[in-house]
Design a protein around this nucleic acid. Structure first.
Length: 429
RNA sequence: GGAGGAGUGGCCGAGCGGUCGAAGGCGGCGGUCUUGAAAACCGUUGUGCGAAAGCACCGGGGGUUCGAAUCCCUUCUCCUCCGCCA
């Protein structure tokens, strides 16, 4: 949530920054401003009236007989009008809250303005390998190796599902372990969280109410939501808490399945592992003081890059333009890995600084010192990495003319020393 | 799923329907004393909105009342017992 004080203190800045992101968000501002103003006015009125009520009702316990009856009558009327006003105020507050929840975060000022064509490449690492034989897409490699089964997955679960089998399942497990281990050594605390959360948690990190259509939820009166990313749980873990500045930055890493309905992406990336309803992702989250967050974003990004480098996968770092950023983010770097079969880079990690946007929604604060007032923390998240896409990238980038796949040295300790994937399974090099 | 019990400030814990934002204790902070520390003593110490006056907040929501932490309804969470279960 944006700081509602901006509505009265700096509406021009608000309008300009929201406009940089999308026309729609800026358009909703008018109604929000009007509601906020009406709320403020009524709040003042109600406060004053209540003050009077408090003073007058002190008299009730000293007055007797006629006098008391008269005062009771007077106070009864005051009380009734207060209830009216309170009801109205609640409605205004509710409306303001609803409007605020749909306002996305303000992009930082040095983020390029525009749609995705304005994304800026910050740096690149590694050189895409040149193949002297026709490259196969990962689904063909996977089928030949007997580690990837889309057909049966679709029969039991439908499109956008897959089964990893044998060495494929083991490779996924090794990747998770390899990534978590790297993060653990960098000071991230490993977390194994719930995968089902209450609605409030989804609102807290900004997935809702905006992206309702993309979320899976359980049936029943109070449904659970299936997390679309571990970010939801790693951030909401501290919801409604006041943290100690000495604890910060807090670093968490967790590997979880992620569930996305992918509404609105019909026909895109229908083949292969790129876009699935369920996929495994290792996620990093940092909770920091405002002063720490800028450096923390660079650190999270570097941490995700370290994985790609260790896996010897060529990638580029993209600073997303205002129109391409997620709802809660003020600044996002995407990491894109080289995909030989598509002859281009594809997103494999997204690292965002949400500043105090999520902290305000989830009410996560910290205290700078024993005497200091609580202040909102900053939250950051980054994939490190999307495991399915990593597996896909390893298969394609490591493929050999005979259909086998050479795996990077860094991963071998997690595979019992094996470095080559063949139809027979994992083998030493 | 069934039967009971409990939810009050950072923590523990009191609280008759009327200056209760809430006694007391612990913890924190400041001070006195001390070479220093401990102990003791004194003071101070919640959050939100507001420029301020002030208002709101005793798990959440609703009600009764001139007035609710205190009464009623409802809901959530936790604990105990039974049942079921990986």
């Amino acid at each position: 949530m944006i700081d509602p004080r901006l509505l009265t203190e700096n509406p021009d800045l608000l309008r300009e920054r929201l406009g940089a992101r999308s026309a729609g968000a800026a358009a909703r501002l008018g109604e929000l401003e009007a509601t906020h103003l009406a709320w403020k006015q009524l709040k003042q009125e109600l406060d004053d009236a209540r003050h009077r009520q408090g003073e007058r009702s002190q008299q009730m316990k000293v007055l007797r007989g006629e006098e008391q009856a008269a005062l009771r009558q007077e106070l009864k009327e005051l009380s009734d009008s207060l209830k009216e006003k309170q009801k109205l105020l609640n409605e205004l507050e509710e409306k303001r809250e609803q409007l605020l929840l749909f306002i996305p975060n303000l992009p930082q000022t040095d983020v390029p303005v525009g749609d995705e064509s304005c994304n800026r490449r910050v740096r690149a690492w590694g050189t895409p390998r040149s193949f002297d034989f026709p490259v196969a897409p990962h689904w063909e490699l996977g089928a030949r190796l007997g580690i990837l089964d889309f057909e049966r997955a679709q029969r039991m679960s439908g499109s956008r599902f897959s089964v990893l089998l044998g060495a494929g399942a083991r490779l996924e497990r090794a990747l998770v372990e390899f990534m978590l281990e790297l993060h653990r050594r960098a000071g991230y605390i490993e977390v194994s969280p719930p995968l089902l959360v209450k609605r409030d948690a989804m609102v807290g990190t900004g997935q809702l109410p905006n992206l309702e259509a993309d979320a899976y939820k359980t049936a029943g009166e109070e449904p659970y939501y299936l997390i679309p990313t571990a970010e939801v749980v790693l951030v909401n873990y501290h919801r409604e808490e006041i943290l100690d500045a000495a604890q910060l930055p807090i670093r968490y890493a967790g590997a979880t399945p992620c569930f996305r309905s992918e509404a609105g992406s019909y026909g895109r990336d229908v083949r292969g592992l790129i876009r699935q309803h369920q996929f495994t992702k290792v996620e990093m989250v940092q909770i920091t003081t405002p002063a720490q967050s800028e450096a923390a974003l660079e650190a999270i990004t570097a941490q995700a890059e370290a994985i790609l480098q260790a896996l010897e996968l060529p990638y580029q770092v993209i600073l997303l333009a205002t129109g391409d950023m997620g709802f809660s983010s003020a600044r996002t770097y995407d990491l894109e890995v080289w995909i030989p079969s598509e002859d281009k880079y594809r997103e494999i990690s997204s690292c965002s600084n949400c500043l105090d946007f999520q902290a305000r929604r989830a009410r996560i604060r910290y205290r700078a010192g024993a005497e200091a007032k609580p202040e909102l923390v900053h939250t950051l998240n980054g994939s490190g990495l999307a495991v399915g896409r990593t597996l896909l990238a390893l298969l394609e980038n490591g493929q050999q003319p005979d259909g086998s796949v050479i795996l990077p040295a860094a991963l071998r300790p997690f595979l019992g020393g094996a470095g080559r994937l063949t139809p027979a399974g994992l083998e030493p090099l």
